[in-house]
Design a protein around this nucleic acid. Structure first.
Length: 255
DNA sequence: ATGGCTTGAGTGTCAAGA
């Protein structure tokens, strides 16, 4: 089973890239973030024609998460239960016996800001819910845009980013709290090229200069981690015309 | 240098992203 995550930064704009990528890579499930649309603007028909069922938890202009799957998803749940949040950032569903949690974690804007406080509260709420979700679903994957670079090797210039948003110690502690639940960073289970990133700023020719961060992740429960055979970042779509600023991350799980 | 792109909203120009 091939599972993947991709922050597309507007599905309306990126639909051609997504359709081409689905055809080329043939994932069993793809989690999308920043669809930036309500259901009425969501391309259900185009995705169905490509062989994918789609679940969407969307809103106008901002946020929005989707799960695309070749098999019928079950036990579909939007949002973090018990955490009142108008921002559409979570969608969970079971596909082929695997519990997929698609997450668009808050950016946080700036350390010390109101948005930063919201980010930390949101991360704590997600952690609490995941603990219960893991107890119910031994085969669980948390996929998405975490907006956290977990370690200095995930940052092109650790000194410049030290203590900054996406790299601050409280954010990294929140990432480690996921690991402490028993989840494993699929990407780091394998040898990877140095300076592997999943996001590059649109400005300053950051992609060509590989000035990026690794902030998109696939975390696996112990049962899935033991079956994980590969994990990679696919930089190809970032090279296209009008790309998303994020690249997809893919993990392969043995049956 | 808080700049430097891109998107959505909406038609002038700003919020938000990371």
């Amino acid at each position: 089973m091939k599972i993947a995550t991709w922050n597309v930064n507007s599905l309306k704009v990126r639909l051609p890239h997504v359709l081409d990528w689905l055809a080329a890579v043939q994932p069993d499930a793809l989690c999308l973030q920043e669809t930036k649309t309500e259901d009425k603007g969501f391309p259900f028909a185009e995705l169905a024609a490509a062989g994918y069922r789609a679940l969407h938890n969307g809103q106008k202009t901002y946020n929005g998460v989707a799960i695309l799957a070749r098999a019928e998803p079950t036990d579909v749940r939007p949002d973090i239960p018990g955490f009142a949040d108008p921002q559409k950032r979570i969608l969970a569903a079971t596909v082929n016996g695997v519990r997929l949690v698609c997450a668009y974690m808050p950016n946080g804007s700036e350390v010390g800001s109101e948005k930063y406080a919201y980010k930390l509260k949101w991360l704590a709420a997600l952690t609490d819910w995941l603990r219960a979700e893991l107890a119910r679903h031994p085969r669980l994957a948390l996929l998405g845009d975490f907006n956290i670079a977990p370690e200095d090797r995930d940052v092109h210039d650790p000194e410049a980013w030290a203590g900054k948003i996406l790299c601050s110690e409280p954010e990294r502690a929140a990432f480690r709290a996921f690991i402490d639940l028993g989840l494993s960073d699929a990407f780091r289970r394998f040898e990877q090229p140095e300076k592997s990133f999943s996001w590059w700023d649109y400005r300053m020719m950051a992609f060509r200069r590989n000035l990026g961060l690794r902030i998109d992740h696939i975390l696996l429960s112990p049962e899935l981690a033991g079956r994980c055979r590969a994990c990679a970042i696919d930089k190809a779509p970032r090279k296209l015309e009008r790309p998303s600023d994020h690249a997809p991350v893919i993990a392969e799980i043995a049956d």
